[in-house]
């Protein structure tokens, strides 16, 4: 038997197998290692026993009661460690929804043209007819009065500036919405800087944000008037 095998097989806590014992009898080095391992085990086993504190059971009882209380309070009241963060998250979520959907969320009122959102799509003929009536309405606009049409202006404009004068009359001439239509064209009320004149313009539906397509302005607006708008 080789030394390496003896090192693997020798166990100081057990009677060695005959082959190991024979090797130890003739190999001084392995015998010394075996002696040291035996001393080591004796040293480890000589460790005095650790005594538990006198109030071990009493401490344990207190901890057990605490565990029981915690466990029962979970069913009774819910575990506040989780309930509080959950409640906070719920409040935050509700607040976020309210903030995002508030009427004047986002931008501050900007000076600019007044917008009247038409309730539904207009067909071509109606649009052409509307052009004339709109212009006529604008040109015949009477002195301004508080307009109920402010209800129909876009939210940002409700808080921005005074409602346009002719809105009510002009919008009243808009044909009723087509059933099932999803399109909602924009009517643009142009007010001269001096405030002496206003015009209503129907913008095509290809309007993204404030980026309108001036070429689609179907009224015979001059370049100057268009610049006034945007």
């Amino acid at each position: 038997m080789r030394c390496e095998q003896v090192r693997k097989q020798y166990d100081p806590t057990c009677e060695p197998p005959r082959a190991v014992a024979e090797h130890l009898a003739r190999c001084a080095r392995c015998r010394q290692e075996a002696d040291e391992l035996q001393q080591l085990v004796a040293l480890l086993r000589s460790e005095p026993e650790v005594a538990v504190p006198a109030d071990f059971n009493r401490q344990l009882h207190r901890r057990l009661e605490a565990v029981r209380t915690r466990s029962s309070s979970w069913w009774r009241l819910g575990d506040m460690r989780y309930a509080l963060p959950l409640a906070a998250m719920l409040v935050l979520a509700v607040a976020t929804v309210i903030f995002v959907n508030r009427p004047d969320s986002g931008t501050a009122p900007q000076p600019g043209p007044s917008l009247v959102r038409a309730p539904a799509q207009l067909d071509e003929d109606s649009a052409v007819a509307l052009k004339k009536t709109e212009v006529a309405a604008v040109r015949s606009a009477t002195p301004r009065t508080p307009a109920r049409a402010s209800d129909r202006t876009s939210p940002s404009l409700r808080t921005g500036r005074a409602a346009p004068v002719l809105s009510e009359e002009a919008v009243s001439r808009i044909p009723p919405p087509l059933e099932g239509s999803e399109e909602s064209p924009i009517l643009l009320l142009i007010r001269e800087p001096s405030g002496s004149e206003e015009r209503l313009v129907k913008l095509p539906s290809l309007v993204v944000g404030a980026e309108a397509k001036p070429m689609t302005l179907s009224l015979s607006l001059s370049e100057k008037e268009t610049e006034n708008v945007f």
């Binding site: 090192r7 100081p12 290692e33 040291e36 391992l37 001393q39 080591l40 085990v41 040293l43 480890l44």
Partner: peptide, 12 residues
């Protein structure tokens, strides 16, 4: 055991 023997050799 062999690791301990190395660590504690001086005390064996």
């Amino acid at each position: 055991r062999r690791l301990l023997r190395e660590k504690l050799r001086a005390h064996l």
